[in-house]
């Protein structure tokens, strides 16, 4: 499953890193504490968060994530988007909340779970 598939299926907006949507997504990760992402997210995970801080991009890069999915609608500041382009981290945006996005992404990535 690539980022592009997920963007299409969840109806997401791509606000940075549109050139890297062919990346494979190894799974989902939800959370807003940067140290937790560094400790527990696996390479290739798509990270769902409400954080808008510029450090999100750095953390995603260090953890080797496939991209960041920002919940809650507000686009991040231009400086964050520029950093994401520079570091090749796709930033996806949705108006939905983190719970719903995780629920729907989980359904796509792990369809047989009930």
């Amino acid at each position: 499953m690539t980022l592009r598939d997920i963007v299409r299926q969840l109806g997401l907006e791509v606000v940075a890193g549109a050139g890297w949507l062919d990346r494979d997504v190894s799974g989902g990760f939800s959370g807003d504490l940067l140290s937790n992402v560094l400790a527990s997210a696996r390479p290739g995970n798509l990270w769902i968060t409400i954080q808008r801080h510029v450090n999100v991009v750095g953390v995603a890069q260090v953890a080797g994530l496939s991209g960041v999915l920002l919940a809650g609608g507000e686009p991040p500041a231009a400086a964050v988007l520029a950093k994401a382009e520079e570091m090749a981290i796709p930033i996806l945006l949705s108006r939905d909340g983190a719970f719903e996005l995780a629920g729907r992404l989980h359904r796509i990535l792990v369809p047989d779970v009930r």
């Binding site: 959370g31 719970f99 719903e100 995780a102 989980h106 009930r114």
Partner: peptide, 9 residues
């Protein structure tokens, strides 16, 4: 992530 996924499902 899994918690949300399971509850949503």
């Amino acid at each position: 992530f899994e918690t949300c996924g399971l509850m949503y499902a």
